[in-house]
Design a binder for these strands. Structure first.
Lengths: 166, 166
DNA sequence: GTGCCGGTGGGGAAAAGTGGGGAAGGTGAA
DNA sequence: TTCACCTTCCCCACTTTTCCCCACCGGCAC
């Protein structure tokens, strides 16, 4: 199973390109020609998934009851906002303007690349700072631990996009 | 399995032609001469299916109990409103006035082409915006996740064109 | 000091998107 | 039946964007 960790500062160049940190390339077995899926939902950051991980999530979405307009809307938003990105010869991806806008990023700016287990997240440093302002580390960790006790079962995926957001 | 993703802005030219985005052509193995099925049901957009995907949907409809007037009506509306479209030499399709009208589109206007797994959807950008205005990403995703837990059972296809449309 | 690896920048070729002209075919009126 | 007109479709040409490749720069290790 794929496990991305750590945080890196990387520049987005004038063409909107972002180099995948070498450690993450190693962790995800990514090289020139590999594909990543970029998606924007929940949190103001760009989420980068290996194709396999992303397809699991897509499968879940596509198996829902599509007679429900809200399900169709969610599917459309999540899958419709995703993009396939191919790594160039220098292991970089091009982030489209739409993606950058969503995360308050732009070409020729600094970004944080955060490893979050199954995927990576690309943040505007200021947005990242601000998003964590409301809760202390202790609070957050306490929440995670109590969840673990309450439902020992399948916390794997849920934590990644989980209900804790609500 | 076919998996359309992403959203593209494309112009519908003065002749009502829409170019299929290159990535979607790749995803659906579409080229000049290929066929797509256009259909209008649920949501104010034009849905474009590869023939194979569409036929699955037709099969599901036709396997329903046709003694039920609602089933006959749904079948008639869905299959009856569909059109075969052939891609021209530049991988474009001609959208008829009836299709454009349904989606609040017209010749010489801008459209969004959204990939939603098995099919693509063509939207008027304003209609698209308005259709999702009511809910936040968090709400939608929360809904998806709670559905996931609540009903692990696979949905049948029936639900897709269900009576909720009436 | 030197070589390698990771990160950065930019130029040129190829592909994608867009627009329009003209032939072919079909329809309706004289 | 013939002509005129309109629609449809096919092809060509242009513009913009993308992406692929090459080159450089700095730092760390040997």
């Amino acid at each position: 199973m794929v496990r991305f960790r750590s945080t890196y500062e990387h520049n987005i160049d004038s063409k909107g390109r972002l180099a995948i940190p070498a450690k993450m390339r190693a962790a995800g077995d990514l090289g020139p020609g590999s594909e990543l899926i970029a998606a924007v939902f929940l949190d103001n950051c760009i989420k980068l998934f290996p194709v396999g991980e992303w397809e699991k999530l897509e499968d879940d979405l596509l198996s829902l009851d599509s007679s429900d307009p809200a399900v169709r809307e969610a599917t459309r938003k999540v899958i419709g906002s995703s993009q396939e990105l191919e790594l160039d010869g220098q292991a970089r991806v091009v982030l489209s303007k739409a993606l950058l806008d969503y995360a308050n990023l732009s070409a020729s700016s600094l970004a944080l690349v955060v490893g979050v287990g199954s995927h990576m997240e690309v943040w505007n440093p200021e947005t990242y700072q601000a998003s964590g302002g409301s809760r202390s580390n202790e609070d957050l960790f306490g929440l995670v631990m109590s969840n673990r006790k309450a439902s020992p079962a399948p916390l794997s995926v849920n934590l990644s996009y989980g209900p804790s957001a609500s």
